[in-house]
């Protein structure tokens, strides 16, 4: 592959505002209830924003009986809705629950890395909307950015699919809480 596109998520910057989630809906017009990107709170004000991680070894691609998934030369994993038969194998197989099942169209869909935007020279909608710079696009054929780690609290096992995502972990901070009444 020429590239392996993916995301860098800075847990130290993310404030859990879900702007990335809504920006994705605004851009991709997913059906109500379908979120290609999801922000979750893993501990008190520690957040995780996850979409498809365009894995090096995508489980969705492997399990799909219709061969609806492709892995492009830039690393992006796509699903062809015309080939999807709605069996939901990919939905169950993905450790990051990236493929979402739409009960109306009876098909799975997932993050496209905003290919149409990229073709216009724009960043993915989630990345460009993030108010804190917590999300970045990154080509993992390059050396990993300094200070990033492979996994943080709340993120599923990475050994199976080798997801194209790295993390800046949260820093420890000085806090003084009220203790008694």
């Amino acid at each position: 592959m020429l590239k392996q596109m993916g995301f860098i998520f800075d847990a130290d910057c993310c404030v859990g505002c879900k702007t990335c989630e809504t920006a994705c809906k605004n851009e991709n017009k997913t059906q109500p209830g379908i979120s290609w990107r999801r922000v979750t709170q893993v501990a008190d004000h520690k957040y995780l924003s996850v979409s498809c991680n365009h894995c090096d070894s995508p489980e969705c691609f492997r399990v799909c009986p219709e061969r609806a998934y492709t892995k492009r030369r830039d690393g992006i994993v796509l699903i062809d809705p015309n080939l999807c038969n709605g069996c939901m194998d990919c939905v169950g197989a993905c450790p990051y629950t990236a493929p979402k099942f739409d009960i109306i169209s009876h098909k799975a869909s997932k993050c496209t890395f905003c290919l149409p935007r990229q073709q216009m020279g724009l960043e993915a909608a989630c990345v460009s909307a993030c108010p804190t710079g917590a999300l970045q696009m990154y080509n993992f054929k390059q050396a990993y950015p300094k200070g990033t780690v492979a996994k943080i609290e709340g993120f599923p096992d990475i050994r199976l699919t080798r997801p194209s995502i790295r993390f800046f972990p949260s820093k420890t901070r000085e806090r003084y809480f009220l203790e008694e009444r």
Partner: peptide, 30 residues
């Protein structure tokens, strides 16, 4: 963030431990 990238510190004083408080260099609950 720009200020902090050039060395500034962020202090948050709040009765609630808010998301911005979680990012502060110093959070004081009051």
């Amino acid at each position: 963030k720009q200020a902090r990238d050039s060395g500034a510190k962020l202090v948050v004083i709040d009765p609630l431990f808010t998301p911005i408080a979680a990012k502060a260099d110093l959070f004081i609950q009051i």
